[in-house]
Amino acid sequence: MNNSLIKLSKSHLSSKSQILPWAAITESHIHTSAPMCRVVSGKYRITKKRDRPLTYEMANPPHYIAHRKTWNSWNTSSLKDGLRRSETVLEDEFIRRFMTGTWHGLMCSEIIVKRQFNHIRVAAIVRRAISPTKMYFLLGYTEELLSNWLQCPVTLELQTVDSFKDVVFKYI
């Protein structure tokens, strides 16, 4: 596009002979190069020791969404005439931060936020590091607080694993 712009301006300039002396300046000073198409976001760099644990979700780069893995947020705000786009994103982020903070050091996976009608379902995998009784306390606490903030029913759908190692898909 840059090239064509210069050509256009050149042809334009050349048609008007009185600003011909400027031509040299424009040509020499607009520098163009090939764009760097490397996508970095959503990918993890390989470590020297190859010891960075990745879950299945982390191991698949974004372009595999809908092929090998699915979305982390499920809602209809991005459809045509979708409503509450920015609010939805913000709320989802809030839910994620609240969950990781409340279930401190227990979350072993990404937090999936699914919205259906007026209902928000939050799914995640947690470690069995605390007793089931405490887990039930946190469950009730999280559901109640989140539903008070988001003003709709919130349900937690948790699965438990013994340790973080159970969700590691590979090391890079």
Partner: peptide, 12 residues
Amino acid sequence: YALSAEAGRKAA
């Protein structure tokens, strides 16, 4: 279990 979930609700 049921009562601890409710205790969490109450705390909230």
